[in-house]
């Protein structure tokens, strides 16, 4: 029995969501083989060696795996899993993991379990459904169980001292009919990553426009070294980029502190942040649903309260 864990990398680093997925892989209790792909894969091998329970590292360095195109990555993963000792396959429920995991399932006739938030046993997991309004305990009957891991629900693994782990290189596996990568545009930010930040300051429609959003939210986020988030309403109104959206259809976050500014708290938004340890809500409407989940609420004008809060912190 063993677990194959897909590790996404960025330069020589393991991505934060993969560090969380590795925690879930450790909880399965079996030896872990880490899989890294793409031309940069080898650069992150040293970091993977610092994760405990890693038994073996498999890399495949073809440039075809750059950008993690699902039509290319899935046949490789399927070929490693097919007729193997792996009883589990684990990947982060990131944009990359969500994109290729179901395709692997289709190739192997397996039904993946998406977005797990708890490992009960090697075949049983808890996952949110209905925008987090119902938690389902799901048992898989498949011979090999494929899961994607919601990173906010698992603490990232710690990196210890490097251990002596065997590294095996596997060659490119012929891919399916695929789309080709054209370009990408990643929003550059000085702020911590939204998915893994300890503190998140989020703005909503109550901030009126983009200028006010920046003027009110940025200084507070800077003061707290926080990531910036937003409600769907704020994104739709063009106050900020869509990649900052917190909610059922955006990012799901579980920081130590979440400050919701001018956010009313629609079900879809609550789905994305209600697992934060401490929630603060600042809103002029005292009836706003956000107050029912907030540990501390303050009713009033965000344009006065937030600058005062920023200056007093």
């Amino acid at each position: 029995k063993a677990t194959l864990a897909f590790v996404e990398t960025s330069g020589s680093k393991i991505t934060p969501s993969s560090l969380s997925a590795l925690r879930a892989a450790q909880q399965l209790g079996n030896p872990i083989t880490a899989l890294l792909v793409g031309t940069e894969a080898k650069g992150a091998v040293d970091e993977v060696k610092k994760v405990s329970s890693i038994d073996k590292i498999v890399t495949s360095s073809s440039e075809k795996y750059d950008h993690y195109l699902p039509e290319q990555v899935s046949p490789l993963v399927a070929s490693l899993l097919k007729d193997s000792e792996y009883t589990n396959f684990v990947v982060a429920a990131s944009a990359v993991g969500k994109n290729f995991l179901p395709r692997v399932g289709a190739l192997l006739d397996l039904q993946p379990v998406s977005d797990i938030i708890k490992v009960v046993s090697t075949d049983t997991f808890v996952r949110p459904t209905y925008a987090g309004n119902a938690l389902a305990t799901v048992k898989s009957k498949d011979s090999q169980v494929l899961v994607s891991v919601r990173s906010s629900a698992f603490a990232p693994v710690e990196l210890g001292s490097a251990s002596d782990v065997a590294v095996e290189d596997v060659s490119f596996v012929e891919g399916g009919n695929g789309a080709e990568f054209v370009s990408e545009e990643i929003v550059k930010s000085e702020r911590p990553d939204l998915g893994s930040a300890k503190v998140v300051v989020s703005g909503g429609r109550g901030l009126k426009n983009k200028e006010e959003f920046d003027k009110i939210i940025n200084p507070l986020a800077e003061k707290l070294n926080a990531a910036i988030g937003a409600s769907r309403a704020a994104v739709d109104a063009g106050f900020c980029d869509n990649s900052l959206q917190v909610g059922q259809t955006g990012k799901v976050v579980a920081p130590d502190l979440y400050i919701a500014v001018g956010i009313s708290g629609a079900i879809q938004h609550l789905a994305g942040m209600k697992d934060a340890k401490t929630i603060v809500a600042i809103n002029k409407d005292e009836e706003a649903p956000i107050f029912s989940v907030a540990d501390v609420g303050l009713v009033g004008d965000v344009f006065e309260i937030v600058p005062e809060l920023t200056s007093k912190l």
Binding site: A134, T137, A294, V296, G297
Partner: peptide
């Protein structure tokens, strides 16, 4: 392929506390 053993509500949050000023909030 998947059996739902149980469906349950997420743990309820004890929210609702309101404060009257920024100083109290801090």
């Amino acid at each position: 392929r998947l059996e739902i053993l149980k469906l349950e509500d997420p743990p309820a949050r004890q929210g609702g506390l309101k404060v009257g000023s920024v100083d109290e909030l801090i």
